[in-house]
Each structure stands twice: as structure tokens, then as C-alpha cells.
């Protein structure tokens, strides 16, 4: 059976991993390769590296950081930020990433997704939609780190484009970003209902219960989170154990396995207490 995935999102700005809050404030966390090394040891299922400054600065994501990171990482990596041409996409894949994440270019260059898919295959293309809920309730796509309104609704974009080269859709809620209030379940449900490609939810995870909730209520393929994974030891292994305890099908761990433990409100393992003992 196909397992549900826990993806660690590594947000990068000016070469450093950052915590992002509402697409407006950024707190430095540390170096990319160190973050990846930890996450790999903590048994995460996949890593997504997103350079959030790249489009606005006119830069591309730094290939060397991916190359360095992938040397010790035997997990799937997707990477993006400012990708708007085939050469950049090719370089990112050649550096050790398995998938490219396309965001702004999906709107500024409408044929770009299908061009990439013809060369690299649909399965290598993740489209990241930064979505904001408008006053009239419409979920609308924004680009350039949430600063430019595309005037295109998320539903319209997906229905029109998903059969033309998209491998996965990463939905990033601008409203929930950094809020710790949980995923926007309404948004995720709407998209999961119309999507024929795997959907990943991102934005707002403040506890592992939020992850369990979004899996149970929407049936999506994967959850992604950034902030929550950076500040707790063994965070991703604990998240997976929590989900397993909640009967979500999760990949069996070969490194760190906390299945059966219980966790406190700060997502830490509570020593010597087990689910069965409650």
C-alpha cells in the first residue's frame, strides 16, 4: 500500500534556512546542508527546498547547496525557487534533486510546465501554488512570494493545467503560513476533490495533530511543514510515529522509531510513557 508522506520544507532566503511567517517575516534557522543532514537522520520521507527569495531577486536557487546537501541524502529531494527556464531545471536535477518545484513561472510562462514535462517527464514536476483566501471566499493564486495577485483562482488553474505535465501540486496557504493554527482544511478539501495528481498540503502546521487531521479529513498524499520541524529534536521521526499511532499508513522506520510513544504539547516525546499504557 502506498504510504502517506511527511515532507520537510526547507525555506531558503539569501543562502540560509529561514522560518517564514505570513510570507512577511523571516527568522534565520541555519545552514541548508546541516538541516538536511538532521532531517535525513530523523527519518523524514522527503525534502523540499524552496528558495523564497529567488524570484524576487531574479536569481535561481543555488545549485551548489543542493549538490552539497544531496551527497549525504538518500531521500527524494525537490527543489525550486525562481525556476523559469529549461537549463536551470536541468541543472537542478543534475545537482541531485529529483523534482523541480515551479511556482511563479507557472503563471508568467504558461507553456513552461509542459515544456519541462516533455523533457523531464511529468513525475519530475511539482507545481507550488501560493494561495490566499479573498474576501469573497475565493481561493486565489499569488506569485513572487505572495506579492502579486494573478487573478486566477486555484481551482481554475488546476482544472486547466493538471493534465498538461504537472506531477504533483503543493498547496501553500499564505493565510496559514507560520500561524501554527493548522492546515486550511477547506482549501485542501476543495483541491483534493478536483485533483487527479497527488496533492501536498503546506502552511500552518503547529502540531502533529494538525497533520493527522488533514490526512483524515481530506485524503491527500502528503503533508509538508517547515517551522515545526526545525525546533524539536527528532521532529520528523516523532511526527511519523504520531501519525502511525493515529492509524495513518506511514513508511516503516529503519533509523528512529517512536511508534507507541506519546508526545507532549510541544511535540516532544514523553519518556517512559506508551500508548498502550494509557
Amino acid at each position: 500500500m502506498l504510504k502517506k508522506r511527511v515532507i520537510a520544507a526547507i525555506m531558503v532566503k539569501d543562502g540560509l534556512v529561514v522560518q517564514s511567517i505570513g510570507f512577511e517575516r523571516y527568522l534565520p534557522v541555519g545552514k541548508i546542508d546541516i538541516a538536511i543532514e538532521f532531517l535525513e537522520h530523523w527519518d523524514v520521507d522527503e525534502i523540499a527546498i524552496i528558495d523564497i527569495g529567488a524570484t524576487n531577486n531574479g536569481n535561481n536557487i543555488d545549485f551548489n547547496s543542493i549538490k552539497k546537501a544531496s551527497k549525504k541524502c538518500f531521500l527524494p529531494i525537490s527543489a525550486g525557487g525562481g525556476i523559469d527556464n529549461i537549463d536551470t531545471a536541468r541543472n537542478i536535477l543534475a545537482s541531485g534533486a529529483d523534482k523541480i518545484i515551479i511556482s511563479s513561472a507557472a503563471f508568467t510562462k504558461p507553456s513552461f510546465i509542459s515544456e519541462c514535462s516533455e523533457i523531464f517527464g511529468d513525475q519530475s514536476i511539482v507545481v507550488c501554488l501560493d494561495i490566499k483566501k479573498m474576501d469573497n471566499g475565493e481561493y486565489r493564486c499569488f506569485t513572487h512570494s505572495g506579492t502579486i495577485d494573478t487573478n486566477i483562482s486555484a481551482i481554475e488553474f488546476i482544472e486547466k493545467n493538471q493534465n498538461y505535465g504537472i506531477g504533483e501540486i503543493l498547496i501553500n496557504s499564505i493565510d496559514q503560513d507560520g500561524s501554527k493554527k493548522g492546515y486550511d482544511i477547506e482549501l485542501v478539501k476543495l483541491i483534493q476533490n478536483i485533483a487527479t495528481v497527488p496533492v501536498i498540503a503546506m502552511g500552518g502546521a503547529g502540531s502533529f495533530e494538525h497533520m493527522s487531521q488533514v490526512f483524515k479529513e481530506t485524503g491527500i498524499s502528503a503533508v509538508a511543514a517547515g517551522n515545526i520541524f526545525h525546533f524539536v529534536e527528532h521532529s520528523t521521526a516523532i511526527a511519523k510515529a504520531y501519525l502511525k499511532n493515529s492509524d495513518i499508513p506511514i513508511r516503516k522506520s529503519h533509523i528512529l522509531d517512536y511508534t507507541g510513544h506519546i508526545f507532549d504539547e510541544f511535540c516532544r516525546v514523553t519518556p517512559y510513557k506508551f500508548v498502550d499504557a494509557i
Binding site: K3, R5, D45, Q123, G167, T196, V197, P198, S221
Partner: peptide, 11 residues
């Protein structure tokens, strides 16, 4: 399959 690609960890 209802959803393609088949992506993720499977036994």
C-alpha cells in the same frame, strides 16, 4: 489508477 503519478513510498 485514479491518481497519477504513483509517487511515494510503497512496499
Amino acid at each position: 489508477a485514479e491518481t497519477l503519478p504513483h509517487v511515494g513510498w510503497n512496499n
